[in-house]
Design a protein around this nucleic acid. Sequence first.
DNA 1: GAGTGGTCTAGACCACCCT
DNA 2: GGGTGGTCTAGACCACTCA
Lengths: 259, 259
Amino acid sequence: MLDLGSIDRSDDRPPYRQIADILREHIRQGQLPPGEQLPSEAELIEYYGVARMTVREAIRELRGEGLVVAMHGKGVFVRSAPPVRRLASDRFARRHRKEGKAAFLAEAETAGHTPSVDQIRVTNEMVSPEVAERLKITRRDRVIVRSRRYLADGQPVEVATSYIPEKIAKGTPIAEVDTGPGGIYARIEDAGHQLAHFTEEVSARMPTPEERKVLDIGAGIPVMTLVRTAYDTDDVPVEVCDTVKVARAYVLEYDVPAM
Amino acid sequence: MLDLGSIDRSDDRPPYRQIADILREHIRQGQLPPGEQLPSEAELIEYYGVARMTVREAIRELRGEGLVVAMHGKGVFVRSAPPVRRLASDRFARRHRKEGKAAFLAEAETAGHTPSVDQIRVTNEMVSPEVAERLKITRRDRVIVRSRRYLADGQPVEVATSYIPEKIAKGTPIAEVDTGPGGIYARIEDAGHQLAHFTEEVSARMPTPEERKVLDIGAGIPVMTLVRTAYDTDDVPVEVCDTVKVARAYVLEYDVPAM
DNA sequence: GAGTGGTCTAGACCACCCT
DNA sequence: GGGTGGTCTAGACCACTCA
């Protein structure tokens, strides 16, 4: 049975804070495991002898921290954490492409997860101003747009959209749904653009409602955005990839020279 | 005069939502500019003819979105958007230290912001297991712990805690509040450890209540965490720096070789 | 229908800030 | 002291979910 402790009216912390702290500690220590239902508001009111607002305030704290999720008519449940994936800075190493693996699949398998990709869509579009600037092409140029969703162990963890100049992608498997072994980076190199380096711009924010839906996350869960630009050995940008990741599912690792 | 509109009881949205939407729109359109005080709770209660909880719920929405800041005893004010700071991957280049500038100050000035640092605390502590592992020292070793808060244009944007092995820091300005020109990295090099590279581990999550307080952010504002480990030319880890940044205030830029 | 969380009312006392 | 937001009480009705 769960020991919910008790609140101390002489404590510095207000009662709602004390209740939140007690519940948070139970979650952190595993007495309330992921998926478990919290005591209902009525039970907490009865147990602590406080007003309803007070327990709701406590639960609001935990919701804001993303620890629990409230479901109308059902209850409040401990959120289950998706598997964390570490993205090392060498994840685009050529050897992975040589082995016939795209970056996501190569990395996920290394980490012991079961990767999958779905919702692949490939279109030919006018380029947006932001992408045009990064690709150093004019706004009248067209790009192949490849979007897809990545899942680890069945849970959506990332949506990504790649933009490749039509000039590079036209007539290659890049413009097809199936790009063949090694993914689009292998095909870009086949097209004569040997990759030299990438730049990545990382930020984080709350998801839009659309992103919440496609990533299957509730309110209170932040996303990381990563915009990667790939350059060939002539320093020509050959791809821009815009990704939105479930933040808690990732740790990004980078190596930065001190010089 | 501000046109606060009115709420419609037959609207799909509950009253608190409608009030939040009205205020948000005024903020977005500039009728309520940054720094401006919102009508007080009492005024909103009177104006809309609702209970106090209802207007508080509306204001809570806006606080969660980071649009406004409540100040106890003073009022609720429109938040000025924090300046976005781009952190380039060369921000630790030696030339910045040579110029006598610590990384944060060097970068912020370049971006045209007014940087400041406060809440500096320096202690000598037992090392935690996580830090010990990164510094490759034993758990019986001690470390100098330097924590501080960074502000850009007066707004808190980051809190950081550095851990330097006592063996390196002892008797140097690293163990003092004022580290002198160039910051702790310059002092570490003075101590004979020429810096070679850093690794950075980036993630994002919701802030803890303590972090919300020190960063002065609402409940719905995510933070980025960045754990940096500095290595000298012998590949010896010389510092671990654990930072928590207001996510919306940063874009991190990295350069990744394609191998 | 019983149980859950979502929203609302109409009060109350408190802590903080300013003058 | 007067105004502000922070917390709390003790109710109420509603919408949603499940059996």
